[in-house]
Amino acid sequence: MDTDVILRTAGLGKRYGNRWAVQDLNLTVRRGEVFGFLGPNGAGKSTTIRMLLSLVAPTTGSVELFGKPLGSARGDVLRRVGGLVERADFYLYLSARKNLEIVSALRGGKDGVDEVLHTVGLAGRADDRVKTFSHGMKQRLGLAQALLGWPEFIILDEPTSGLDPQGIKEVRELIRRLGTERGITVFLSSHLLGEIEQTATSMAIINRGVLAVQGRVRELLEGGDNVVRVRATPWETALRVAEGVAGTPALRVEGDAVDVPLAADRVPLLVAELLRAGTAIHAIVPRRSLEDYFLAITEGATDIAPRGGRGTEG
């Protein structure tokens, strides 16, 4: 057992009715990482985070925290995790301090309330009712409750949403410091590539509930050949084949071009498969940017082929 692995999901999936919000998700987060979980709105980030924190039961697959299954060791592992899920909500009729004391008591502790209030810059408003707080202050208090007891692993869902530029800067700075100064592993979701680029060491991109790519931020963003553009006809077949080889969704861009995230050493396999499927290949071009790819899925301006079930493995 790799003791450095803090979080591992295996085949994690969630279906609401007949729509899959998250499908076959395999994530690995290691100790000391700031792991950026990037995806456009509605990509399945929050559903994933809710499954990691036991708010939502997975339809398929499992979550392991610190090497133990969340399903059976829930109390044990959640004691070592702090979390903020979506908008920071509190008991509005209670003071900030009382709210934190409640969370602290649920974690089985009592101390540290003043320290985290100080860390997020709310010490001066500790005894005011949360009702009187602005959105930005609630969001800071949300961070404070996640930090209570300085857990080993902190899961933050869009922690900078709704903050002013100064607040965003401070929160990002705080997240970086959590990793470097306190050795806390952070799982951070965002729909902003820039935010992940600035704060995270590793990242995964999720789109339409499916993992598109996962790796070290530096390698992914500077590697330059992580996305391949395929021009082949018929493009429908090319897209299907590309997805089969990459194991992730591909995008149709401008006419018969298809973009797919793919490592350079898998391009020969892609060519072989395209030929085997009987497509006419016009060009296969490595493209720099994960950024372009991410922008494309964020804008949703291009078609994303629906993935047919989960039959694309291998």
């Binding site: 924190l53 036991s54 708010l55 829930r74 109390g75 044990d76 959640l78 004691r79 995790v81 979390g83 899920v85 979506e86 908008r87 909500d89 509190f90 008991y91 509005l92 709210n99 409640i102 969370v103 649920l106 974690r107 089985g108 409750q145």
Partner: peptide
């Protein structure tokens, strides 16, 4: 309504 289940149910108590 208050959204506080997200505060309460991500903690150790079952």
């Amino acid at each position: 309504t208050a959204g506080t289940f997200r505060l309460l149910l991500i903690r150790p108590p079952s």
